[in-house]
Design a binder for these strands. Structure first.
Lengths: 136, 136
DNA sequence: GCTTGACCTCAAGTTGGCTTGAAGTGGCAG
DNA sequence: CTGCCACTTCAAGCCAACTTGAGGTCAAGC
């Protein structure tokens, strides 16, 4: 079983050593030994790190992600949870799309002031609604 | 000119009084006077708050947003900047969409383990790339 | 054998966007 | 006139996800 020195893993994964130590501290990853003082990691940890960054992209917290690995570090992704998260992503994508369209419109809008533009005003109503709802 | 007590504005906008005070403290909004101790705000501030929540949705920081108002509180949205931000939103939307599709696929994927699914592995490569780039 | 440099530990600091707590004040209903 | 209650100030706290700093260790290259 090939072992990776923390520096190598860091280099390979783009995750800084301090972050790796932090991840280990919170139990997200495990080192399998030491070379002198230096942590050594299983090659599998690189895969795990890719999954972690994937999870972060999808909006999971590190704590959420922690629950997605079995004790041995292999992924354990509950399908229902994935669907839920995909739905949340859908929501987010819809909101962002609306926002982007409106921004484009406003940027090209000939109205003297943005406040004179009906689309902009509609956008603000949307924003006001979105703003007064509790954050996701 | 109609004035709003902080409580009224808070109620109306869904922004908590402490947040309003915080926004004033950082110079994002201005109160126009006091009724006893209580801050009073211009009715226009409600509009401004809608814009602020809009800006937050779009991924602007409060500091960015601060730059989007003239000293009198009227919006000053540079069109070039809007286009840039819309482009960034596009990027974000594309990434999220890819992610969502892949998540859906994985959730329904018949492979024994997620690790056996080619799509999942491709997704991880994407994640590894995205993760090692500097955060936007 | 000595230096070097990347690692080590542990505590504390950072950032953004607020919220909370303690102690005080003032307008208004009764 | 009294009590209430939403406000006030100011400092401190909170959250996640790290980073930084001080002081220490160790394997490897010269």
């Amino acid at each position: 079983m090939k072992l990776l020195d923390i520096g190598v893993l860091s280099e390979q994964s783009g995750v800084s050593p301090s972050t790796l130590r932090y991840y280990e501290e919170i139990g997200l990853i495990q080192s399998v030994g030491r070379h002198g003082l230096r942590r050594q990691f299983d090659a599998q940890t690189a895969t795990q790190l890719a999954l972690i960054s994937l999870g972060k992209l999808a909006g999971f917290s590190l704590d959420d992600i922690k629950g997605m690995f079995a004790k041995d570090g292999t992924p354990r992704l509950p399908r229902a949870e994935l669907h839920l998260r995909a739905d949340a992503l859908d929501e987010q994508i819809r909101g962002l799309t609306r926002l982007r369209d409106a921004m484009r419109h406003v940027a090209d809008c000939p109205a003297e002031s943005h406040m004179d533009c009906p689309k902009f005003r509609r956008l603000m109503v949307f924003a006001a609604r979105a703003g007064s709802r509790r954050r996701v």
